[in-house]
Nucleic acid binder design. Structure first.
Lengths: 338, 338
DNA sequence: TGCTGGCACTCACGATCGAAGAGTGCCAGG
DNA sequence: CCTGGCACTCTTCGATCGTGAGTGCCAGCA
């Protein structure tokens, strides 16, 4: 177990390094933080911290920089989440409040998050699987062709074409529409399959094929996983990485384009609060020198999707975590209102 | 007017520079292209080309590189559009053919374009203004609250909430729905305003307010310009820019995030064929060292949106133009089918 | 036991210098 | 009008060499 002072030294190292982006030495440390001890003492502490793997030297006789393990300790034990200031909170609310539809909410959220954290922002569209159905609409495009429109409580709209095995009359259509909505409106997606199972039985034999087709299309839509779209923004912030970044930025941009990778990344975070994955904790190789700060958000208390930021391991964790948490909270409010 | 040989020299310079990314000298030129003349002669030609502003030297006593004006001449007069090979065409068709809905078509198009050209791809969603209406649906969410759903011939769906000035009965709703569709289904967006103008008159006085509200919401939706969404991809290709790119990549990434800038960029190209804007021809400062190759696409013969790529001025113009043209063509086919 | 000042040592970094090489412009001759 | 030759210009690269930040270790002191 590390002594209290050594933890303070680690905290100071992280803070200074995040600020200056340069390895920090013992002398500079004692000057900028009043630790009450001499540089020599700090050197001893640093040696101990290095033995434990919390910090490292880029080369002999240079200052120390935190390792992933060091950041991890910092995040877990040494730093809290820095709350947003009141003006910041107001700005967030104003900015998000101006959104006109779901696409706009997501687009604004990405911009906002990127600007607040000065990093790359990632926002997942509200996931269907935990949402509820607001309305299901059926439109007749041709005698044997329907369009199925699903509207969710988060304002999302999905449409599907349905080719019917047999022509389907207007009255049957109205009937199906009414029955369908009375059963599933307001219900969670997960519950829908059980609720519509026996629906075909209520129809004439000739219409049952079509009803079944419609239902299976509906269920397909509900589970459609490729609909887990996400939006990223603020990639220009990657250029703040550092001087050495040509080698760093490439794999990050590549990883960011792989939506699958990002979805997995966000999905891994099970923590109900803000989750931080640091450097090599990220499974994807291209993100080994980045940290991901993410959190779930959703209308009401329940998380329906994730959002977060991707940045260098050398980031302002308390500030970033605060921003991410605040944005998630307000997005949730906006979604609940609409 | 430049002599034939000087044009060939310019062409050779462009080709070599695009290939090697290094300034090209007179000796290397004569070795790689059999121009039938000696380096000394080429030097004279180069001096002339430099006087005319087609090429420049980064510093005294280095090879020459093409200027924006040089690329312009190359694109206009010296290079054709390189057609895709048959296997490439098949690959494009296969890749795009697998798309399940409009979002997927656009997403695949971006990926494809980025991979083919190894540059940043930009695809604008099919624009509403030139599309036609497939169907308008009205849903009653509450006594005085409707949802308006607009379905276009390109498969796009837009929804809007409508707060009615007065409660609106189911029968009036059905009436409005029917009248609306009989008038606008299959018509071009541009024609819709004139077609629905007198619609309120067909309703009882108490419903006219609501009908007007619905209509104005519909018209708003049609002209909504912020709905000119676009998708970009392949940003990782920016890292291929060169060694000096930290300064170059930043403003480009920033410009790419400004959707307004990109939309203007694509919008400016009025040419029915492939349009190329080189370096400083782009109004936006951040894109002064890039070229934009764009083309319109759409179902049927008519262009409903643009797509293109953004890359360094030092790009393979014939190949890029070929790829952009081919992709646009096949996307158009896919859209026409669905 | 733990902190401190002192001291020798190690390297990265930046500046200076010089040789090498690529490329040019110009000129005289074919 | 083209060509070979030649002197000249500059960038690039490597080597050399201080400089200075930072370290590790040690002996002394509370």
């Amino acid at each position: 177990m590390l002594s209290e002072r050594r933890l303070q030294v680690l905290r100071a190292i992280v803070q200074d390094y995040v600020g200056t982006e340069e390895p920090v030495g013992s002398k500079a440390l004692t000057e900028r933080h009043n630790l009450g001890v001499s540089p020599a003492t700090v050197r001893n502490d640093m040696a101990a911290l290095e033995d434990e793997g919390y910090i490292a030297q880029p080369h002999t006789s240079a200052g120390r920089i935190p390792t992933d393990k060091g950041y991890r300790l910092f995040v877990d034990k040494l730093a809290g989440v820095k709350p947003m200031t009141a003006p910041e909170r107001r700005a967030i609310q104003n900015f998000l409040g101006g959104a006109v539809d779901l696409d706009d909410v997501v687009a604004r959220t990405v911009r906002l998050l990127a600007q607040l954290t000065r990093q790359v922002a990632v926002v997942q569209y509200p996931s269907l699987t935990r949402s509820t159905v607001r309305h299901v609409e059926l439109l007749s495009l041709a005698p044997a062709r329907l369009m199925l429109v699903l509207i969710t409580d988060t304002g999302r709209v999905e449409q599907r074409l349905v080719d019917c095995p047999a022509p389907f009359g207007e009255s049957s259509l109205a009937d199906l529409r009414a029955r369908l909505n009375s059963r599933v409106a307001g219900r969670r997606f997960a519950d829908v399959p059980g609720l519509v199972e026996d629906l075909p039985e209520a129809f004439e034999a000739e219409d049952r094929g079509t009803v079944s087709t419609v239902l299976s299309t509906l269920l397909e839509t509900l589970v459609e996983e490729n609909e887990e779209r996400l939006v990223i923004g603020g990639t220009a912030n990657l250029t703040r990485f550092g001087h050495d970044f040509p080698l760093t930025i490439r794999p990050v941009l590549e990883a960011l384009e792989e939506q699958v990778v990002l979805l997995k990344l966000l999905g891994e975070a099970k923590d109900p609060g803000v989750t931080v994955r640091i450097g090599h904790e990220n499974a994807h190789e291209g993100l080994n020198s980045t940290s991901v700060v993410s959190v779930g958000y959703g209308s009401g208390g329940e998380a329906v999707a994730k959002l977060g930021v991707v940045g260098p391991t050398r980031m302002d964790y308390p500030g970033t975590m605060g921003a991410v948490r605040a944005v998630a909270r307000y997005v949730g409010q906006i979604l609940a209102e609409s």
